[in-house]
Design a protein around this nucleic acid. Structure first.
Lengths: 302, 302
DNA sequence: GAAAACTACTTGACTCCAGCAAGTAATATC
DNA sequence: GATATTACTTGCTGGAGTCAAGTAGTTTTC
């Protein structure tokens, strides 16, 4: 099913479940639009009425009347703005804030009541998933992503995602997962911190990608491993950044060469390697993980 | 932040992002309520108007007028019901269906346009997360969960969740993850299918828990390992089910005894073990994974 | 088996949310 | 300093949605 249709299906069910479309806000004297205006006013970033109208997609005339009503009820003070006599500075009174607080509390209680049948961990899990969804719907900016060292859970995540990704996209069989698991187990157990390093690209709590620099066995030669990027984190220069970090670390650690092996079918990765100055040194057909592959070796002088 | 507040924050942002509160549906001649009615009619489960009104939380009088309007426009046929002359059977005409289809298409295009700036994988990722959230908001029923053997990605998931869970809840240090990783690597690599088995509890694509039955080294004695349940999957008898499956397998495989070790602080797990007939055979303080723990051994005759 | 209670739906009367368009007054632009 | 633009207000209006009282058919009750 198409993602758009899946999102629409979610909208239908969610609005019903959460009761989002109840027109009148909890039996209060306020319409939904009025509530939104009150809420926006409470944030009090000093927007003039016009911007408020645009933000909330409301008619300016209607908004004017709403504000007038708020003022009449003593919730709002509209004083002519000093900078521009056409404008009026909008400031909620303490009473206005109290009304909103009461409204918010009721909305909160209403939602809590709806979710009461569910166990507490489910609430947290749902909130997590919703926040995740929202973050997926917000363009990922490369500078929100930071590269850090490996932390608890990262190894498991990498094993899981490698197994899933290569199974789904390249048909790798079950023998691939323990291989990756062994690599990571060894890394965690016998890692030489001076010459070996993992970089995990993460956007907050979300893991997006990885790259490892480890010893190859041959002195002075580093090996690049476990270069991975989540599909939706591609195309924002993150792969390049990971590779740069890895190369930078290798240079700093005193290696004079870096090698890696990959499979021909990884077009995107191969392109990044080539662009970074790696050269192809060997290419041979193999049968691994239940698939016919062309294994390629790359190297670069540091 | 409280989950309820996080969900409310999501609602605010999401409705804005997706444009859920646009009252008039895409400039069509229909109100949002009318659209919902039309949609519900298209599902055509032959509900009488009254149930329709309750489902959509609409005033019956208003609904009556809406249906009348649909009929006048030739979208709907209201024939007196055979079973009950008060009722009228509601059936959309082909034209009615066409109108809805057109509306749906436009709503779809509208959403697609809103999401167009995002890369395609992000759409799928968002849809995934939204569906996840919805499933968290639906009470987990034990019978929707099935127990299966280990599959690609499961080992990585287990490693990740063990590392995260024990780090968050028991303060285990980074040495715990490679231990779990090694256990799983070995299991995948040298598992004896006749006498060793993993059960993964899964609700569709979501992994909820696990239990392993492996050889202990002593002939005739099985070892229970990696018993884990996601916090929100507890309390529905799933732990019991996993344990039963494990014990059942062990009996079938010809073991005469099963042992396990755990830590005293795992109250819930210990309670399940005791209830199943396990007896505590040893208890000793240890310092593991950066924590002072009391290691406990249990056993049961099969 | 007839009155009473109830159900399914309709209709009239009303409220008020909200959109449109034409204002007024202040500011910006040239 | 004339013209255009901006910020806001107000009059008018449609129609979405509500409330209550209706009509006609069905079930319950004794």
């Amino acid at each position: 099913m198409d993602p758009i249709d899946r999102i629409r299906a979610f909208n239908r069910q969610y609005t019903q479940l959460i009761g989002l479309l109840s027109r009148t806000y909890l039996g209060s004297a306020l319409s939904l639009s009025e509530t939104r205006v009150l809420y926006e006013l409470s944030l009090g970033s000093g927007q003039p009425a016009r911007t408020l109208a645009r933000m909330l997609d409301l008619d300016e005339g209607y908004l004017s009347r709403v504000l007038k009503g708020f003022e009449a009820r003593g919730w709002l003070i509209r004083a002519p703005a000093a900078s521009d006599a056409r404008r009026r500075d909008l400031a909620l009174t303490a009473e206005g804030r109290a009304v909103l607080a009461d409204l918010e509390r009721r909305a909160r209680d209403d939602l809590a009541a709806r979710l009461a049948p569910l166990p507490a961990p489910a609430h947290a899990a749902a909130a997590d998933a919703l926040e995740t969804a929202l973050s997926r719907l917000t363009p990922l900016s490369a500078d929100a992503v930071n590269l850090r060292d490996i932390a608890p859970g990262d190894a498991g995540w990498l094993i899981q995602r490698h197994a899933e990704y290569y199974s789904e996209n390249y048909g790798f069989d079950a023998s691939f997962e323990p291989l990756v698991a062994q690599i990571l187990t060894d890394f965690l157990n016998v890692r030489d911190r001076a010459t070996e390093r993992a970089f995990i690209a993460a956007d907050g709590a979300r893991r997006l990608g990885s790259i490892f620099c480890v010893q190859s066995g041959t002195p002075g030669v580093a090996k690049l491993r476990l270069f991975f990027l989540e599909p939706d984190a591609r195309g924002i220069g993150l792969g390049q950044r990971l590779l740069d970090a890895c190369l930078g670390f290798a240079r700093g650690a005193g290696y004079r060469q870096m090698t890696l092996w990959t499979h021909e079918s990884h077009r995107a990765a191969c392109a990044i390697y080539a662009k970074a100055g790696f050269t192809l040194t060997a290419s041979k057909p193999v049968h691994s993980f239940g698939q016919d592959l062309v294994e390629q070796s790359f190297e670069i002088a540091l």
